[in-house]
């Protein structure tokens, strides 16, 4: 064995990584997003996407949806550490494969090109609830709502039809059926 030059232990085996969607209900106060995001960066957790907005004006509650990857142990830590933050009310955790949960992300595409290219772009977007938000002689702004990987795919495929700019939200999530997460 090679002699280690460190007084720290050497890393052990790493487990399998899963993608999870973590939903956090927080008091909408100054710095709360920094606390949540700082916890992730400070402990070396991953953030793939993030969506935040106030959802209850009366109670002053914001809902933060974070897509993250980690071993089961790390995901468990993320939840427990989040629950310790003072402004956090509750934390939900969904696996991406979970059929009982809807995940959606919205994207805006700006397409610049001739009529035929614009038409083709719109056609390609059709199955993702495409809406034209703006048109000009040379351009379209198209809105779609879809899964993360579908938007990834679209942003690649639309290049040939004159895609010049992409803007997308992070994923948001909600359970199916009449139940809500308590």
């Amino acid at each position: 064995m090679v002699k280690s030059k460190s007084a720290y232990s050497i890393p052990g085996k790493q487990g399998k990584l899963d993608t999870h969607i973590i939903v956090v209900w927080v008091d909408n106060e100054a710095g709360v997003l920094a606390r949540v995001v700082g916890l992730f960066s400070g402990r070396g957790y991953n953030i793939e996407s993030l969506a935040v907005a106030e959802v209850d004006l009366k109670m002053n509650i914001s809902r933060i949806t974070i897509v993250t990857t980690g071993t089961p142990q790390v995901i468990n830590q993320i939840k427990l550490q989040l629950k310790k933050l003072v402004p956090v009310h509750k934390v939900a955790d969904f696996k991406r494969e979970d059929k009982k949960v809807i995940f959606k992300e919205m994207a805006l595409f700006k397409i610049v090109g001739n009529q035929s290219k614009k038409k083709k772009a719109l056609k390609a977007c059709k199955k993702y609830n495409a809406v034209i938000l703006d048109k000009s002689n040379k351009s379209y702004v198209i809105q779609i709502t879809a899964l993360r990987r579908e938007i990834d795919l679209m942003s690649k495929n639309l290049k040939k039809f004159g895609l010049v700019s992409v803007s997308r939200t992070g994923a948001v999530a909600m359970t199916r059926g009449s139940e809500i997460f308590k």
Partner: peptide, 13 residues
């Protein structure tokens, strides 16, 4: 509050 956020349980301005 920004500097001490990661080294306190909680802080307030």
């Amino acid at each position: 509050t920004g500097i001490t956020r990661p080294c306190t349980k909680h802080n307030w301005l």
